[in-house]
């Protein structure tokens, strides 16, 4: 099924309330633009005809109000456009604050495909299935160059960077199929790094989850990796006094840094970069050992560690 079969469309479909707000914003801004430019265009055309060389016209100039006029057309359009700055900023900042109940999907951009993984471990390439009416947070990273995850129907995009997680969230409430693209030039097959976003009813989504192949849940895969990479040997007790990881996420670490996904990622790959000064360098770097896929699983597992449950263990 193709999102749009027609050969010409003049307005993109909107799949979320936020997309509709963005449309309102751009329509209103366009209206203001017309208010500002149409007088100029008409004025220039009219003056050019009215005051053509050789035509009789009153060309006497009145002086005296020049400065007021100047200040007027400097300040009034500026203030009018500032309304749109504020409006745009509010929508943008909303986009930066995902709701707590958002369903989290891990995404990896690589030349030249998207990989998505659902919490239950269902992985898909290029296409993404999400339930309608459910906030979805996409946590993404690039395995090589900079890519951009872009869904025009949601009016949002975010670039995926190597070495750092970036996030994007949306609440698609209109069932349908929409395009999903790479918006940052990434090499030879940049224009084929595209897929489809399927916004499904929650029931359809559940059915899709059930029938797609799935391995382990991300968190349990993370637990398994935590053991198999030997992390558990030190961090779950043992002889080395490794920092406890339960409840660490979202806190300020001993070295003063805020613990987020990117922090945990560098702590795994390059432990020296996050080591508390004075602590012995015991942990080996896992750079080149752990893949991006395993990294988000490990991080998901570490995040899932609940200090209360940990204490009772």
């Amino acid at each position: 099924m193709n999102p749009q079969q027609q050969a010409l469309s003049l307005w993109p479909s909107a799949a979320s309330a936020a997309a509709t707000s963005a449309d309102h914003l751009i329509w209103s801004f366009t209206a203001l633009t017309l208010v500002l430019v149409v007088p100029i265009f008409l004025g220039i055309a009219w003056f050019a005809l009215r005051y053509r060389d050789g035509k009789t016209a009153n060309r006497r100039l009145r002086h005296g109000h020049d400065r007021m006029i100047e200040l007027g057309w400097m300040i009034i359009p500026f203030v009018l456009t500032l309304i749109f700055f504020v409006w745009g900023m509010r929508l943008f900042v909303d986009q930066k604050l995902p709701p707590a109940n958002a369903m989290r999907i891990e995404a990896i951009g690589r030349q030249w495909m998207w990989k998505f993984e659902h919490p239950g471990g269902q992985a898909e390439i290029n296409d993404l299935h999400v339930p309608a009416g459910q906030p979805v947070l996409i946590n993404m990273i690039s395995q090589d160059v900079i890519h951009g995850l872009y869904v025009p129907a949601l009016r949002i995009q975010m670039e995926t960077l190597p070495g750092r997680y970036t996030q994007l969230w949306f609440n698609a409430d209109r069932v349908g199929t929409y395009r999903l693209l790479c918006s940052e030039f990434c090499g030879t097959d940049h224009s084929t790094m595209v897929g489809l976003l399927y916004v499904m009813t929650p029931a359809d989504y559940a059915a899709w989850l059930a029938r797609s192949h799935h391995g382990e849940r991300i968190v349990s895969a993370g637990r398994r990796l935590f053991a198999s990479y030997g992390c558990a040997g030190c961090h779950d007790g043992g002889t080395v006094a490794a920092p406890a990881l339960a409840g660490l996420y979202g806190q300020v670490a001993a070295n003063g840094a805020y613990v987020d996904d990117t922090y945990l990622r560098s702590a795994i790959l390059d432990p020296d970069s996050t080591r508390v000064p004075g602590q012995p360098a015991v942990m080996p770097p896992f750079k080149g050992v752990v893949s991006e896929d395993d990294l988000f699983r490990l991080i998901a597992y570490i995040k899932s560690l609940d200090p209360a449950a940990e204490a009772s263990r």
Partner: peptide, 26 residues
């Protein structure tokens, strides 16, 4: 003048955070 006005004002569209989030890179 005509083209500059259109180009300049669409620049303000791009400076608007929420619009840029959609049309950046397009």
């Amino acid at each position: 003048i005509g083209l500059f006005v259109l180009g300049g004002l669409t620049g303000l569209f791009l400076a608007t955070l929420a619009i840029d989030e959609h049309v950046h890179g397009t």
